[in-house]
Design a protein around this nucleic acid. Structure first.
Length: 270
DNA sequence: CCGACAACCTGACGGC
DNA sequence: TGCCGTCAGGTTGTCG
């Protein structure tokens, strides 16, 4: 799924459908995704008005006027379908609004999650508690990276995937940002220079903003909530391009660690 | 505390 | 055409 830009795109797509509307009906079609789906979801949300839709890291937050927030995570394969013409397998949650619109949360792999929590306690939810700063927010800067990465032996790529370091990056955008910053993904996180921290912050912001502007990810099973296919034509610099030429002319390399691919250029990333 | 890795689950794709 | 192995955007728990 969905890394931060895809969740941001999703939230922006849900907003005009849900914000200011009441939930006329909400039905869970199975008891669990990654975790159990709250059994009292229908009771607590039916009739409630959606007053805001927000994003934190890779989580979407739907606030209601009853002081509850529905928190969704799309996992690897989750997406919202808008006004579906039929009920599909893996439509695990179906929401109807008082305006006659319907949203279905579809997630074949079920790595996603749904939680219902008091709005005031959202930050205590497992997964949200302990998250690092938003990469597009003011708290994410070179000083934060220095303080967080100093003394760490682990590869910088692993550190950037750690949501406690910075919240919202995943495999694709970490590969892309490291390439843009010309930093090797296998370099020890604690060895980065001040200049590298500065470049990395800028690269992360640039990569995420570009992806958000493009409307989200290019991966094949991602769809925006309005049902249109995701943005397929986006060309990654290195991700998924093993053996192809980097902009410097060298071949893009790939390695696999515990089942996850890393793509980078061994010439321009040091 | 830290780092490495397996596990969770389904679908798409390529090779034979 | 069909079967099988491989791979996929994430998170979490366990082990050393």
């Amino acid at each position: 799924m969905p890394e931060l830009p895809e969740v941001e795109t999703t939230v922006r797509g849900l907003r005009p459908v849900l914000e200011g509307r009441r939930i006329a009906r909400i039905v869970a079609h199975r008891p669990d995704l990654r975790r159990p789906i709250p059994a009292d979801l229908g009771q607590r949300l039916t009739g409630a008005e959606v007053i805001a839709i927000r994003r934190r890291a890779k989580y979407g937050l739907i606030d209601t006027d009853r002081g509850d927030t529905l928190v969704f995570h799309l996992g690897m394969s989750g997406r919202w379908r808008l006004d579906p013409s039929e009920h599909l397998a893996h439509d695990h949650l179906v929401v109807d609004t008082d305006a006659g619109r319907r949203l279905a949360l579809n997630d074949p792999r079920r790595f996603g999650s749904l939680d219902l929590i008091e709005t005031a306690r959202v930050d205590t939810l497992p997964g949200l508690a302990g998250l690092g700063p938003e990469p597009l927010g003011p708290a994410f800067d070179a000083d934060h990276l220095r303080a967080t990465l100093n003394g760490r032996i682990a590869p910088i790529k692993a550190m950037l995937l750690d949501q406690r370091v910075v919240a919202g990056l995943g495999n694709i955008y970490v590969c892309e940002a490291l390439h843009l910053a010309r930093i090797s993904p296998i370099r020890g996180a604690g060895t980065l220079s001040r200049a590298a921290h500065v470049r990395l912050v800028a690269a992360i912001r640039d990569v995420l903003n570009a992806a958000i502007e493009a409307g989200g990810s290019s991966l094949r099973d991602y769809a925006r909530p309005d049902g249109e296919l995701g943005y397929f034509s986006k060309q990654w610099r290195v991700y998924g391009r093993e053996g192809e030429a980097c902009s410097c002319g060298a071949a893009v390399a790939r390695r696999v660690d515990s089942g996850r691919s890393t793509f980078w250029c061994t010439r321009c990333q040091r």
